[in-house]
């Protein structure tokens, strides 16, 4: 039973992690690198534009591109390779962990007499996306490097509480049979947001808001797709492996 859970969760998670890595380098990594240039001060968006506007528009465009290229060319290729390899490694590791948790959930459902197929696996996957990414993002939007946020410990605590409350809340809504469980599920979904995420009293971000918004949207979009794939694959493996 343990073998069935671990094998299914790890295989599905590893495959989903590879998909996540491909999408990461297609949509997200360039925004992280750009955000870091604002974080380190290599690029300064507001003052730079004011100065540039005082000169000419074309000049501003050239400077931004030049600044970007400089950063990319200046970085050591070996470092880049190591950094990206570690990103692939940890992306597969995190999705393998998600996969294992997801399959532990399947097993719990089976324990209560509910079978999980590939189709239902997709629903589980999207619920996992809601619990692990979407709901926490409502209070703690995905951080572009160069964003500034509240105390890390407090944010991690709120993140964990939100994940647990959202996961249990969705499970109660999906599998509960009475109005009471539905009400309890709804309350759990709402609670983290009623409590509210730790926030700063002021905004300190140095990255352009357009960039941060694009980053957050892309992170959630990639997460949505990968979680859907993870759930489908994990459900398929789960339903086809004898108990």
């Amino acid at each position: 039973m343990i073998k069935r859970m671990l094998a299914g969760g790890i295989i599905a998670g590893f495959a989903a992690g590879l998909l996540a890595a491909v999408l990461h380098f297609a949509f997200v990594q360039n925004l992280i690198l750009l955000g870091e240039q604002y974080e380190t001060g290599a690029l300064v968006h507001f003052e730079h534009q004011v100065e540039a506007q005082a000169a000419t528009h074309d000049h501003a465009g050239d400077e931004a591109v030049a600044g970007h290229d400089h950063g990319a060319a200046g970085a050591d290729n070996t470092d880049d390779f190591q950094r990206n390899a570690l990103t692939v490694l940890f992306t597969t590791l995190i999705y393998a962990s998600y996969g294992i948790l997801l399959v532990a959930g399947f097993s719990l459902a089976e324990h209560f007499g509910r079978t999980v197929s590939a189709g239902e696996g997709v629903l589980w996957g999207l619920s996992g996306f809601a619990a692990f990414q979407l709901a926490p993002a409502m209070g703690l939007p995905p951080e572009l490097p160069g964003s500034v946020a509240a105390d890390l410990g407090a944010r991690q605590a709120w993140w964990l509480g939100t994940v647990l409350a959202t996961g249990v809340g969705l499970a109660l809504l999906g599998y509960g049979r009475t109005a009471l469980t539905a009400a309890l599920g709804g309350a759990l979904l709402a609670a983290p947001h009623a409590i509210g995420a730790p926030r700063l009293d002021q905004f300190y971000g140095i990255a352009p808001p357009e960039l941060a918004a694009e980053f957050a949207a892309r992170v959630l979009g990639v997460g949505f797709v990968v979680w859907g794939a993870l759930g489908w694959l994990a459900g398929r493996l789960w339903s086809r492996t004898p108990a």
Binding site: R83, N84, L89, S97, Q133, P142, E143
Partner: peptide
């Protein structure tokens, strides 16, 4: 696995997992 990859704050783990943590919405 989730804690080690996503939350642990040892410098080595943090640096290695840095881009993934940003890209997966971890604090």
């Amino acid at each position: 696995g989730l804690f080690l990859a996503g939350h642990a704050q040892s410098a080595t783990l943090h640096d290695a997992a840095h881009d993934m943590r940003h890209a997966t919405g971890f604090p």
